[in-house]
Design a protein around this nucleic acid. Structure first.
Lengths: 181, 181
DNA sequence: TCCTAGTTGTAGTGGTCGCTACAAACACAT
DNA sequence: ATGTGTTTGTAGCGACCACTACAACTAGGA
């Protein structure tokens, strides 16, 4: 047997804490508690708070992409189709909790504390790239533009969902796509 | 001369601190410093942290409504027209900073700390009511639905603006309304 | 056997936060 | 003069945070 704790174990613990309790509870102490050890062990592998956040973001972001890849097919789609197929997935608890973390990150980002602004910028940039590969448009700038439009609408809906409740978000979704639910 | 500090003085200081430094810096100590006194004086008028936040939210929210009332005329408009006329205003520094505060509130709200979730819910609910009075639709439920759609799109755009930058937000705005800028 | 990476113990630094305690001064109205 | 509401001084509580210091013990590889 090699080491008692692998980096993957720790990343799992970090993701658990973040999903369960939110970014504001993502602390060395709490991760250590989740692992059943002391915070020094966590600091040993993740020397700065930023490393914790990066690990959480990477883990949760890729989970979210897995969920969405199931919903989207393999062929490129129009922005409206993307929203239409993404929305039911995003309403599920898994995805909802992940987005909650993202909303928290945005809040920390705009409050200008530490490294959160860069982290948030990067993750959103990555999502734009990722989504641009799935949107149907003749050229790359147009694909990115449409991807940004999709992100804006979806994020707006999810913000509404978290702040005003699921029903209000569904109403807004109907208003945006002007079709029956 | 009556009192050295009026409640309005304090609300002004609260709004200043919040706009300049963000909700995360809205503390008894910082408001007291802004006023040139000690935190006990602030606590005297605002016994709980929640009172500070409520004062800030009310002040900034009404400022935002003033800005938007200028942009909207007196007659009801379609959702697209509302977004079209609101967007240039929301890009100005005044409005942008106010919305930054709102994004911070959403972040605190979803992290489940204290009274922020209720506060955020209420302010968004008020905005939905306020906007429903300005949207053109035959009946009230439809007005509210369309208002929610406007809020979702605008908030999504502003989230993008804060997290990814003004250019990305403008691209997204173009993608959403599909007209030339 | 020695070396090294990993692990644990114990403890602490300096900081922020919301909020409290208690007493003394001050202005003003009754 | 007595009371009432406001202001200030000084001080602290207990909780949490990121991060550090230093020593010791352990297991596996060379």
């Amino acid at each position: 047997m090699g080491h008692k704790y692998s980096r993957d174990d720790m990343v799992a613990a970090i993701a658990n804490v973040t999903l369960r309790d939110g970014v504001s509870k993502l602390t060395f102490r709490n991760v250590a508690e989740e692992l059943g050890t002391s915070d020094r062990m966590v600091v040993y592998y993740f020397p700065a708070k930023e490393d914790l956040v990066l690990a959480a973001v990477a883990a949760l972001s890729s989970r979210m992409q897995l969920l969405l890849e199931e919903a989207f097919g393999n062929d490129r789609r129009s922005p409206d189709e993307l929203i239409e197929s993404a929305w039911p997935v995003l309403k599920k608890k898994n995805a909802d909790r992940i987005f909650r973390v993202f909303l928290e990150l945005v809040g920390l980002s705009v409050s200008g504390i530490g490294p959160y602004d860069r982290i948030t910028h990067n993750i959103l940039d990555e999502w734009a790239d990722w989504l641009a590969e799935r949107v149907d448009a003749p050229n790359q700038p147009e694909r990115r533009r449409l991807a940004l439009g999709v992100i804006a609408r979806v994020d707006g809906l999810l913000l509404l969902r978290h702040a005003l409740g699921p029903d209000a978000a569904d109403e807004a979704a109907r208003a945006i796509r002007m079709k029956k639910v």
